[in-house]
């Protein structure tokens, strides 16, 4: 369980995060989503005791990271963005060192390390020097280090950055597996990644939380089912006029004219209306079959734009009210 209240961090005069408030319950898998420089890593570094906050508190399982750092740190496994690896050591030596550092009993150390290596699939590279491992394996060794001492909270800073697609999927699966018994906080600037792993998302921008919701609700609220890409066979102009005639349709735009006599359109509808059924019947009646229909995934940039613009207008509105 992580409780954060009023967390603020300034680097000199530069604000990194301001007045963060959130709670993460035990067993939850939560993602910090935000562009580079939004304050994700700063927040994680404060949670793990690497940095101190300018003001505000962070508690891990009820223990303040500043007042009771040793006990609080026992409950945290942290993998920073760049895994803190001693490149001249072998994987086994490194994990042994991590175990000694975290005070794992020497009687159970060997078994503990073997289990973790099995969990993150690095058993076969145990004897290799870390310097010679690929980026994906280094990332896993970093993850294994975070798991040493069996902490109940895992904090992972961009765990998949720089990996190839197969490695990304593997690491995600490992994290999902780990999240079954632990609290996991991970950061990312990739929306689909957070969607794939996390139960809840905190969107951070300019050092403040701009959204805190489940990934489904977040993307539904922002993009929703009301903006879609649809491919239809039929003459362009008549298809467009049929589309425009559907009740609840707000805009129709040609996206691409295909050579096979079909065309892709981007349609937008009233958010309160599910346009799909009436559109299907209208087009079927006119004899223009729908070949594909997909909701338009908003890119992270769009979401940020949307969220931050909303935030800006909201605060401007508030200011106006105050002025009045």
């Amino acid at each position: 369980m992580i409780e954060v209240s009023g967390l603020t961090k300034y680097y000199g005069n530069k604000k990194a995060v301001e007045d963060l408030n959130f709670t993460i319950s035990s067993g939850e898998v939560v993602g910090f989503l935000g562009p580079n420089g939004a304050g994700k890593s700063t927040t994680m570094n404060i949670l793990t005791g690497y940095l101190s906050a300018t003001s505000g508190t962070a508690k891990i399982d009820g223990m303040d990271i500043l007042d009771d750092p040793i006990e609080a740190k026992r409950h945290i496994g942290y993998m920073p963005e760049q895994p803190p690896l001693y490149l001249d050591m072998t994987v086994e030596e490194y994990l042994n060192f991590a175990a000694e550092l975290k005070g794992v009993k020497s009687s159970s150390k060997r078994k503990h390390i073997a289990e973790i290596c099995e969990n993150v699939s690095i058993t076969h590279v145990k004897g290799r020097v870390i310097k010679n491992l690929s980026k994906g394996y280094k990332q896993r060794v970093g993850l294994a280090m975070a798991l040493i001492g069996d902490p109940d909270t895992l904090i992972l800073d961009e765990p998949t950055v720089g990996l190839d697609p197969i490695q990304i999927i593997e690491i995600r699966n490992v994290i999902k597996e780990l999240g079954r018994q632990r609290t996991v906080v991970l950061s990312s600037h990739i929306l689909s990644e957070v969607q794939a792993i996390c139960e809840r998302v905190l969107v951070i921008n300019n050092g403040t939380i701009v959204a805190n919701d489940t990934p489904e609700k977040l993307s539904a609220n922002i993009s929703g089912e009301h903006k879609m890409n649809v491919q239809i066979a039929g003459p362009q102009s008549s298809v467009m006029s049929v589309l425009r005639s559907v009740d609840g349709m707000t805009s129709v735009a040609l996206r691409r004219d295909n050579e096979d006599g079909t065309a892709n359109f981007v349609i937008e509808s009233d958010p309160n209306v599910d346009i799909r059924k009436p559109m299907f019947f209208a087009l079927a009646k006119a004899g223009y079959p729908i070949l594909s229909l997909q909701p338009l995934d908003m890119s992270l940039e769009d979401i940020f734009l949307r969220l931050t613009v909303e935030e800006d207008t909201a605060s401007r509105g508030a200011r106006k009210k105050v002025a009045k």
């Binding site: 793990t48 690497y50 740190k73 920073p80 760049q82 803190p84 991590a98 550092l101 975290k102």
Partner: peptide, 14 residues
């Protein structure tokens, strides 16, 4: 330089 101080400083040691 190697950022390994992050490991030491976030471990339960003084």
């Amino acid at each position: 330089k190697q950022r390994t101080d992050q490991m030491l400083l976030t471990a339960p040691v003084r």
